[in-house]
Design a protein around this nucleic acid. Sequence first.
DNA 1: AAGGCGGGGAA
DNA 2: TTCCCAGCCTT
Length: 354
Amino acid sequence: MSFPEIILEWYRLNKRDLPWRRTKDPYRIWVSEIILQQTRIELGIDYYLRFIRKFKNLAELAKADEEDVLKLWQGLGYYSRARNMHATAREIVSRYHGQFPETFDEIRKLKGIGEYTACAITSLAFNLPYPVVEGNVLRFFARYFGFTDPVDTGKVKKEIYRKALQYLDANLPGTYNQAIMEFGALQCRPGNPDCRICPLNKGCYAFQTGNVDKLPAKSKVQKQRKRYFHYLVFIVHNNKRKHIYLRKRESDDIWKNLYDFPLIETNGPMAQDRLMLTNEWKQMVEGSKFHFRKRSDLYKHILSHQIILARFYFIDISGKLKSPFSLIPLKDIGKYPVPRLIEDFLTNNISQNE
DNA sequence: AAGGCGGGGAA
DNA sequence: TTCCCAGCCTT
């Protein structure tokens, strides 16, 4: 049997029952592919089910507010995916009358859809012969065919794309693509794969040369940067209900278009007395009466490229803060999309029915 | 080509 | 701790 036949047979016996494998609806395929970018299947399943339950089709997504899309995305990370999906839904409504485009070139041009996702949608939804090349496929090809150069370069990715196209089963591109990704995820997994039971170990470069744990090679070493966040949690008591100030993060930074609190960021750790002497602090509370109540412990929030060291300052205030901040009833805070860090803080410190 | 963009789970 | 996940966009 040829290698694609072995993969297909392995897939028939070992595939998981995943919700997006039960549909040919390009909208649902698209949603699943975006959610799964840099995201584990097990984590993505619940988000996918909730997403298609709330936005049942492309038209519903297009007419939703971006904020509601982000709220559904909360906790999943890489929020540009949600922003781009929402924008793309509207683009498809206006440019394609709400009909999902069916050619590779049209799909590839859509915001948030790169080379991999365009291949995935065209093959899975429309059964067109485009090979998927993502993490699983790169790993499998690097090991099986012995691509020893780093796979996170354009050069090797192109070589593997060519190889993938060569072996693609043009009769069953959708099934074949699913199969090879599933094989990479389950059999040719990143750590400690069980090569003894692998149906392809005979022809596998890495297995035969004892390099399974060295492939695929990676070149990029991403380093983390430390950031120091001082969140000012202004509570307003002069109404019947407590209110709180939020800010929408609109700059090109982490968590774009999500909400957090008025923030002072410093280059290093800073004690409270020094913080209250900074210009940022003075401008923030200028013209209002405030009373510092307490300070939270240090929160260490780890992203793949940043380490956020955050502290929350509880401050009672009367009078108004200036415009970039919006005053909202504390009981409504759950409606706003917030980063995981803020979500964690809220569950620890704020009871929603105050 | 390189860097930014989240968060979680497994070893 | 380290790795890496059905990647994409901007510079």
